[in-house]
Simulated scan of single mutants.
Amino acid sequence: MHAFYSSIPVRAEGCASCAPLEDFLVFSAAGADALTFLHGQLTQDVTGLPTDAARLAGYCTAKGRLLATLVMWRAATGADDEPQLYGLVRQDLSQALLKRLSMFVLRAKVKLAATALNVAGVQATPEQAAALEAATGALPRAAWQRVDLPSGTWIAAPSANERLRWWWIASDEQLEHSAALVAILSLAPAAHWTAGDLAAGIPWIATATQDVFIPQTVNLDLIQGVSFTKGCYPGQEVVARSHYRGTVKRRMAFGTLEDASLDNAALAGVDVFDATQPGEPIGRVVDAARDAGIASVLFETTLAALPEGDLRLGAVDGPSIKATPLPYSINP
């Protein structure tokens, strides 16, 4: 953990919270062909991405199954050999992702590399945001908008409630010049931020869930993570067929479990069952977090199981999952 985060005290409610996200990594794509190369690899319209915005994207196999999800944004305009795009991904799959993407570069002028940028999640009430902006400058309020400030890049993250959320990406130098923020931030665990991601319905693919889901079954198409007009990319035919034929019968849902003994780190990929229909599992966990004694999960399942099903984790008689609506509709 960077020394800046270690200097933030743990305070009671009243200050914006800052959670260092050490399980995430930022990579860069540099070179004259960086944008067009990634445009042909990801589910998102890379070349059409506004400079003041970020977007979710997926990277799929040829069969349309996700190997990664990422938040991506354009870099400030510079020389061709400087970064043209940045991507935020889970740390555990980052090395394999960059290696696989690099295999397809061929003659394209693009270089993919991990960066040393620091990642944190900042959450604030509207009242706390005023004090935060006094130190940072104006921050984006609408989800997926972004701004580059002296303290770093701030990307507004979706939220399930009135709280404002930002991914804060900063270099070591930028953190060292952000001392004024220490006085108005409270250090929070990464699980506190992750729980907010889950409640907002943001699907982060990890090593345990690679090559399992197509974009639609983790709702990537419902949260601006898939472009159906951009043209070809690996798995595009499968993704497009599911979209235009209306054959998506599985979606990602959100739920909570009041079981403080659960190890959220080991829940990704665990099966979900319906106790009213014993037998085969009806889905599996996409991601999980435990915050304030409550475990929350994003899980992929059949739409038919959600209204009436008695959802259980890991086994028919496993812990009960209380399904809670996401901030966007998952019904067709």
Rank of each mutant, 00 (worst) to 15 (best):
A3Y: 08
S6N: 15
S7V: 06
I8C: 14
P9I: 05
P9E: 03
V10I: 14
A12E: 02
G14N: 10
C18T: 07
E22W: 10
F27K: 04
A29K: 11
G31I: 05
D33Y: 10
L35D: 01
T36H: 11
T43E: 09
D45I: 07
V46Q: 03
P50G: 08
A53E: 12
A54W: 07
R55M: 14
L56Y: 00
L56K: 01
G58L: 09
G58H: 09
C60A: 01
C60Y: 04
A62V: 13
K63M: 08
L66C: 06
L67A: 00
G78Q: 13
P83I: 12
L85C: 12
L85G: 02
V89F: 08
R90C: 04
L98M: 02
L98S: 05
K99Y: 05
L101W: 06
V105W: 00
V105A: 04
A108Q: 14
A108C: 02
V110E: 06
T115W: 07
T115N: 08
L117R: 11
N118W: 07
N118K: 12
Q123Y: 05
P126Y: 03
Q128L: 02
A129D: 10
E133K: 11
A138H: 03
R141S: 13
R141V: 15
R141P: 03
R141G: 07
S151T: 15
G152A: 07
T153W: 02
T153H: 13
W154R: 07
R163K: 06
W167P: 01
W167M: 01
I169R: 00
A170C: 02
Q174P: 09
S178T: 10
A180V: 01
L181R: 09
T194K: 07
A195R: 09
D197V: 08
L198A: 02
A199T: 04
Q210P: 04
V212P: 01
V212F: 13
F213T: 10
I214Y: 05
P215T: 12
Q216A: 12
L220T: 12
D221N: 15
I223F: 06
Q224C: 00
F228D: 11
R241N: 02
R245A: 04
R245M: 10
R245Y: 05
R245C: 05
V248Q: 06
K249P: 01
M252K: 06
L257S: 00
A260I: 11
A265E: 13
A266M: 06
D271W: 01
D274C: 01
D274P: 08
Q277R: 15
P278G: 02
V285F: 08
D291W: 15
D291M: 04
G293P: 07
I294W: 04
A295S: 13
E300H: 08
T302H: 14
T302Q: 15
E308R: 11
L311W: 13
R312F: 00
D317F: 09
I321H: 08
I321W: 12
T324R: 12
T324E: 11
P327N: 08
P327R: 11
Y328V: 05
Y328T: 00
S329Q: 13
